[in-house]
């Protein structure tokens, strides 16, 4: 542990931008932990949830986390991400719950969209079932307002009715830092400590804190196919269709999600600093570059969120 130098802190405005974001996120996590009876932290294995775990350490160590960690597992995972998840959870010594989309399909809760089809949307059902089964009243997630135009509208503490629905036309007023976290049985909250962080803030924080990520965030050689203008990694669930050919590319991932709809970007950025330099000059948003599911409709994120998506 290194002591903070006093002259770094001589005035409120001299708190760096990252210090302020960190402090706010820690504040939000503590409010949720204190106001809600059974919160849970959602962990996808991606960079935003890796940052959330570090912020939870900052908020609650030397104590244990006052909530379990839950992975909503589509079954379409990158092996590197699962390995990272298990390694990280073992290091932290915290409880991991896995809510499985595979299980929801097997038990008939959702229809199998077929091999190779995205299970992104199905996650909402699995998530809401897990929320009900465990009696969670708050899900802490890593979504950011800069990711999408519907998310740009969402509160830090975002209310979900007893059907798990978000009503963007009728959100609770949320003034100052007065996060109001009470809900009735059956209702729950989504809490977004990273609301005001941008992709660049997240990476700058990863650099500052030396946060480990799954290696697929850095440039590596991979067998890919091109589909709908995106590079998809060839794996068990992604096979070339007629007319598509497999080729080798140097790529990295900007987001991590269901392997069937998360695209890779051509990149040679193999260190944190190189990634930051790349993001600074990128002319395409993170979701625009990598998410097939958001390309088809103008309001796909809003629709998914209304149904209970992250």
């Amino acid at each position: 542990m290194t002591a903070i130098r006093i002259d770094d802190l001589h005035s409120a405005t001299s708190l760096s931008h990252l210090d302020m974001l960190e402090s706010q996120a820690v504040f939000i996590m503590r409010e949720v932990a204190a106001e809600c009876e059974r919160p849970v932290l959602l962990f996808s294995g991606g960079k935003d949830s890796a940052v959330l775990l570090r912020l939870a350490e900052k908020a609650f160590r030397p104590g244990r986390f006052p909530f379990p960690v839950m992975h909503v597992d589509t079954g379409h995972n990158f092996a590197e991400v699962l390995a990272f998840r298990d390694r990280r959870m073992a290091d932290l010594g915290e409880q991991l719950i896995v809510a499985s989309v595979e299980e929801s399909i097997r038990s008939g809760r959702v229809a199998d969209p077929g091999p190779g089809a995205s299970r992104n949307r199905l996650q909402s059902v699995t998530l809401l079932d897990a929320v009900a089964a465990h009696g969670f009243d708050a899900c802490i997630g890593g979504a950011r307002r800069d990711e999408d135009k519907a998310r740009a509208k969402e509160r830090v503490l975002s209310f979900r009715d007893s059907f798990g629905q978000w009503d963007p036309r009728n959100q609770r007023p949320e003034l100052w830092q007065l996060y109001q976290g009470r809900v009735r049985p059956g209702e729950h909250l989504r809490a977004f400590p990273l609301s005001d962080w941008t992709e660049l803030d997240v990476w700058s924080y990863i650099a500052r804190e030396q946060i480990e990520l799954p290696p697929i965030y850095y440039a590596h050689d991979r067998a890919v196919i091109e589909r709908d203008g995106m590079l998809l990694a060839v794996c068990e669930w992604v096979r070339p269709r007629p007319g598509e050919t497999i080729f080798e590319e140097t790529v990295r991932f900007r987001t991590v999600g269901d392997a069937t709809c998360t695209g890779a970007v051509r990149s040679t950025a193999s260190t944190i600093d190189e990634v930051i330099a790349e993001i600074r000059t990128s002319r395409v948003t993170e979701r625009g570059a990598t998410r097939a599911d958001d390309r088809f409709s103008d309001s796909s994120m809003e629709d998914r969120k209304r149904e209970g998506y992250f």
Partner: peptide, 30 residues
């Protein structure tokens, strides 16, 4: 750019606050 909800686009009005992050040469903007 900021009226991102379907209802906002249909009605041509803003319903709820949109947050955007930008910069000038000297500062970050929220």
């Amino acid at each position: 750019v900021t009226d991102g909800l379907r209802a906002e686009r249909e009605q041509g009005i803003t319903i709820d606050v949109a947050y955007r992050y930008a910069a000038t040469p000297r500062r970050k903007l929220v």
